[in-house]
Nucleic acid binder design. Structure first.
Lengths: 204, 204, 204, 204
DNA sequence: TGTTAATCGAGACGGTACGTCTAGTCTTGGC
DNA sequence: GCCAAGACTAGACGTACCGTCTCGATTAACA
């Protein structure tokens, strides 16, 4: 599904039916492959076009920048995960530890690591992409997380007046920072400690 | 002071006295100017060399990459701030709020914002630079912050067994993340709320 | 008209109609100007591209080397002189003296001298260029000269079994050598003496 | 022995005894090796200095240009051949054929061919070197050749009033031209034909 | 014999140009 | 009118050398 302004929505698409779905898929696929192979900074539009068997203009026609292509390429992967729901065993601490440990594992997996890092670097430098990132990737996941926290509020495990946005940041930002800047090792124990500290701040 | 492997320490420097201090200073100065003028992604080694009145080889001789030059350029600025000491009024909450509000203000200042963002993007993508970053920029400041937290521990305002590294991350990572990804506005009130929440987790 | 292997013939041209005639002409024109201004050894592809308002790649795309560009630049000048015919008054000695005196004059003219010398130095060092030189520049002129010698044979002024290739060399090589190595002054009298000696060797 | 203006003569040498003969020999030796290995156009002063274990300045101090070094390097080889004498069996035709066949063989030997060609290209482009070339390399050999022709004059095999300089050019220039421009194959038969034609022009 | 000044190896310096790569635009011809 | 293909201008990349300029460290002549 389209992401960039040029093609923001399948229903609004300028020339419906004229765009080659074949080319679009080939471009995104080539982009994913190349990011894995050479890394984001060495990725070039030339190489994408060549790999995809596509004219460069076809890329420039539909995407604003290299970052936008990469964004779409990996957005396409996470799409379909729309109905994200976090586990809810009734024990918020156990559930959060599980989720954060999963995140730690994801960050450790080089297959995911490279493109996610690329995406984050690009997002850091491009406010427009950042907005896309929030709307299309972060927001749905964050909403699911907040829903789990609300459930904990109803269960009396978290203060009723807690700022859930801040709570999410307290939970995820330290992990994110360690990963992005490689400032310290990311371990399951770290995830646990993080959850324990944050819950201490959130309990009634 | 030197940062890159090629010139790791003035005392260990390969050919002491042979390197032109004049050129080194001109390069770092030109780099700072150009980052401000055109931004990091549009910064080129060619332009730095031209602006500094220096041969390109002189840059390649002493720095590994564009990122390394930028790093040194801004490192040189923060140097001299070696003996960082945080305010200590005896009230850890008030002191932390002041410090975090100052950080928020710094991130809001476009003069600092652009190069720091550039540096962070570069550090995110280059493990070697990341190590330099931790050692030379982050470590001294973090140590000062931890010293203030230790003082609070002695005053009984923070638990004696608290993990201070984690405490620092809880305080700063959410702020860092909001700034880097522009995921939400950075306000003094946010800084206050952050401090309040984190202290709740750390109190005895 | 094309010279280099990459574009050997307008009819065989790889992508007919794709190459920019405008750029090609600008490049050859700029080359001629620059050879005159700074001389061949100081001629650079960078400068040609800049003067022609052309990307460097456009030069590298269609020519193998600086020498090849220079070759084409001056080949383009002599083209059109395809139907060279030497004077034929019936007196072979007078006619040859006239032609060799003209060659002497040409070598003395600094406007022609510089590029021809550049071309000869390049041809001396590059067998491929040398082949082009023979085919496209030397051959037609040599053929015209041999035709005049054949006419003299028919008139009984030159032996019927004379080796005309050798005859040409005897006539022109001494002149060429004096010019190239500047081993002695080139004068009209020298041209006359040369003709007289060579004809003595060729007469029946 | 010195060649360039900076060191024109051992007796006039500015600081007699100060110059390192060791360095001079190493430079010329390295130059010969490198010309053979990479060819003249790819020869660089940097490489010569590195190979010779010499500072670049030591080369620039004593030679005007790359061409001057190469010139000296190969001049040193032919020196000692001062007292060149051509064979004199009494039969000028046989003797000249032998000498020209030897020249043809020399031009065919790749060991000699490469540096001589390099030297000729350089001499063609540098009038000052050309003068050196004439004085130090060509003159002695030409004098020996003319001496043989004079002997033939005395023997009545060549006209007494023949211009011997022109005679030499008629003999050697065609051969030189064929070799330099690779305009036709150089064979012993060609040498013979050349001698026969030229002698026909010179006989009484 | 010790002084002193030129030469030496070494290599950093400001530069120019190389030949390659990519950006982003434009043009052609096929579908 | 989109598409693949690829030529175009533009300009940065990182490398190779240029010729000049310090640096000490020899080193040879003179004092």
């Amino acid at each position: 599904m389209p992401t960039t302004p040029q093609r923001p929505d399948p229903r609004t698409r300028p020339n419906p039916g004229r765009r080659s779905e074949r080319s679009r898929a080939a471009i995104l696929r080539a982009t994913r492959e190349l990011v894995s192979e050479v890394g984001y900074p060495r990725l070039s539009i030339e190489a994408i076009a060549a790999r995809a068997g596509v004219g460069k203009q076809t890329i420039y026609r539909w995407w604003r920048s290299k970052g936008a292509v990469v964004f779409d390429a990996f957005l396409a992967l996470s799409e379909g995960a729309d109905g994200v729901v976090l586990p809810d065993t009734g024990d918020i601490e156990a559930d959060l530890k599980e989720v954060l440990r999963a995140t730690v594992a994801e960050f450790a997996d080089p297959v995911f690591e490279a493109p996610i890092r690329a995406l984050n670097m690009e997002v850091a430098g491009d406010p427009e992409l950042a907005a896309q990132y929030r709307e299309r990737l972060a927001a749905p996941v964050d909403e699911a997380k907040k829903e789990r926290l609300r459930s904990a509020q109803r269960a009396g495990q978290i203060r009723a007046d807690a700022d859930l946005d801040l709570a999410l940041e307290l939970l995820y930002a330290p992990l994110y920072q360690r990963w992005l800047l490689r400032s310290a090792p990311l371990t399951p124990e770290y995830a646990d400690a993080l959850v324990e500290h944050v819950l201490r701040a959130l309990r009634p």
